[in-house]
């Protein structure tokens, strides 16, 4: 997977950070405005995919190695489950919003909602990493090893 032209690379250098910032905003303000963990996570994954398409697979793997993406994926899923289990300890039931019951913040403020913003962040990490991994796996098999390149431009299809 090679990169694209200089024009695409330059534009990507300027816009990828902005897309990432927008995704982070959608995640962080998911309990106040439209958006949330899933939508924000998809936008974050789109920023990574833009980098992958523009700069090629090697550069993308330098930005975010596959092992790190795999671990962050599992971390997001486990963090969401852990938030639910901590609710069992703090409030008695699975998914109890114990944080909100103990320290309720001001309504319409960012630091409010108990475990909801935390769960948003966990889901965003999970969704972003899984979608990036799905894209990477489906679009290139070179990551399995330098010597094991398979040409999917198969002969039977045409």
């Amino acid at each position: 997977m090679t990169g694209m032209t200089v024009i695409v690379k330059t534009v990507t250098r300027w816009t990828a950070a902005l897309i990432f910032l927008y995704g982070a905003y959608v995640v962080a303000y998911g309990h106040l405005g439209p958006g949330g963990g899933f939508a924000g996570g998809v936008i974050l994954a789109c920023a990574y995919i833009l980098i992958t398409l523009a700069y090629g697979g090697e550069h993308a793997l330098r930005v975010l190695p596959r092992a790190v993406a795999s671990r962050l994926d599992s971390f997001g899923a486990l963090a969401f489950l852990a938030l639910a289990l901590v609710g069992m300890v703090g409030g008695g039931l699975f998914f109890t919003n114990w944080l909100q019951q103990k320290w309720a913040g001001k309504a319409f403020h960012v630091f409010n909602g108990g475990i909801i913003p935390l769960a948003n962040v966990a889901i965003a990490i999970k969704v972003c990493m899984s979608l990036f991994l799905v894209f990477f796996i489906l679009s290139s098999v070179r990551m399995f090893g330098k010597d094991e390149q398979i040409d999917f431009r198969s002969k039977e299809v045409d």
């Binding site: 309990h31 405005g33 108990g114």
Partner: peptide, 23 residues
């Protein structure tokens, strides 16, 4: 829930099981 966005409140508090299943 303390969440001004009711959709998020439903997704992550009232119906958090569904979100867990989706994840």
């Amino acid at each position: 829930t303390g969440s001004a966005n009711i959709v998020t409140a439903v997704l992550l508090d009232y119906r958090a099981y569904d979100t867990l299943g989706e994840a």
